[in-house]
Write a protein that binds this DNA or RNA. Sequence first.
DNA 1: GCCAACGTTGGC
DNA 2: GCCAACGTTGGC
Length: 135
Amino acid sequence: MNYWLLKSEPDVYSIDDLIQEGEGVWDGVRNYQARNNLRAMLPGDLALFYHSNIGMEVVGMVEISTAAFADPTTEDDRWSAVGVKPVRKFKKPVPLKVLKSDPYFEDLTLVKHSRLSVMPVTKAHFDAILALSEA
DNA sequence: GCCAACGTTGGC
DNA sequence: GCCAACGTTGGC
């Protein structure tokens, strides 16, 4: 079981959009490192859902429902997509500001490499963010 | 709206 | 294969 963080601009695709759909396709990734992370995902893996630009906070948790397949938004077979299902939306989202101000998260990729859109998260960090969402 | 960080492209 | 130019992302 692996843990991840998925980043999306909410005015393009938000956690509410995913909840409304019931199941979504995480596509449109055009970065090799992010794509490699998508390809390492397995059904049942859990991911945090982060809203970039607007909100700038971790807003919920999702589950990977389908392992990587060809990205349907392009003919180019270099790119991959995965299926995702909502698990829950946080009552109390966890702002980037909080993660940045806590030394515990200084190695979190979201903090260190803010441009990567699909990244692995350690179980410890994952659990700590869940705990903050309930604090 | 700006700009730093970073990835990609293309000329050499 | 290097690197300058350029485009994009995303925080501020």
